[in-house]
Nucleic acid binder design. Structure first.
Length: 259
DNA sequence: ATGTCCCAACTTTTGGGA
């Protein structure tokens, strides 16, 4: 099974590229963030023509998350059903061939002294509560744009981020707490100390200068990570005409798992 | 330090957000 997470930065602006990427890569499950559109514009029919059923949690101009699947899509849940939902359409969950999948767009936080930073922390706390205890038999993948670089190796220049969001102990502790529920950051587990990024600012030629962050994560429960056969970042998708500022993160795992 | 992109609207230019 091939599962992908990709912050597309407007599915309206990105549809041609996303469609071409789907055709070239044939994911079984595609989690998207920042669709930036309402259900009226969401390409349900176009995705269906490509073989996917999809579920969207959108709000229009901002945010918006989706899951497209060609291996089933059951038990769709939009948002947490708690006050943290006021921070926007940022979480959608569904079960795809027995794997519980969450597509998340964590609030950016803006700046350390901005009220939105505390809301970001609260949102991450809510995500941890929503995940809760993970039974050993449960297959769960929590994927998306976390807007947190889990460690300094995930930052092109840690000195440039002193005093900024995405790198603080408060944010990193919360991501670590989510992993401590029983989820593996499978890219980091696979690449050791190697530096690799999933996001590069549009400004300043950041992509070509290698100024990036690894903020898009795929966190897998033990039953999934034990079946993992590949995990990678499709950096090439950040190249070319009208790219998203994020690259897709791709994982593959044997599923149903070998017994 | 801020050179880009995307969206909406009091829309052809500006402001907000990332």
């Amino acid at each position: 099974m091939k599962l992908v997470t990709w912050n597309v930065n407007s599915l309206t602006a990105r549809w041609d590229r996303v469609a071409a990427w789907i055709e070239a890569n044939a994911p079984d499950v595609l989690c998207m963030q920042e669709t930036k559109q309402d259900d009226e514009r969401f390409p349900f029919k176009e995705l269906e023509a490509l073989g996917y059923e999809s579920a969207h949690h959108g709000e229009g101009r901002w945010n918006g998350v989706a899951i497209a699947s060609r291996v089933g899509l059951e038990g769709v849940r939009r948002g947490f059903g708690t006050p943290e939902d006021e921070h926007g359409a940022r979480m959608i969950a569904a079960t795809c061939r027995g794997v519980d999948v969450m597509s998340c767009y964590v609030p950016n936080g803006r700046a350390l002294d901005d009220p939105f930073f505390e809301k970001k922390l609260a949102w991450l706390d809510r995500l941890a509560l929503d995940i809760g205890e993970i039974p050993a038999t449960r297959a769960l993948v929590v994927a998306g744009d976390f807007n947190v670089a889990p460690a300094d190796v995930d930052v092109w220049d840690p000195a440039a981020f002193v005093g900024a969001t995405h790198v603080t102990p408060e944010e990193r502790d919360r991501v670590a707490a989510i992993c401590a529920l029983g989820l593996d950051d499978v890219i980091r587990a696979r690449y050791g100390d190697e530096q690799l990024f999933t996001w590069w600012d549009y400004r300043n030629g950041a992509f070509h200068r290698g100024w990036g962050l690894r903020i898009d994560l795929v966190l897998c429960s033990k039953s999934v990570s034990a079946a993992l056969t590949d995990a990678r970042v499709d950096r090439d998708a950040r190249k070319g005409v009208k790219p998203s500022d994020h690259a897709p993160v791709v994982i593959e795992f044997d599923w149903p798992a070998a017994t």
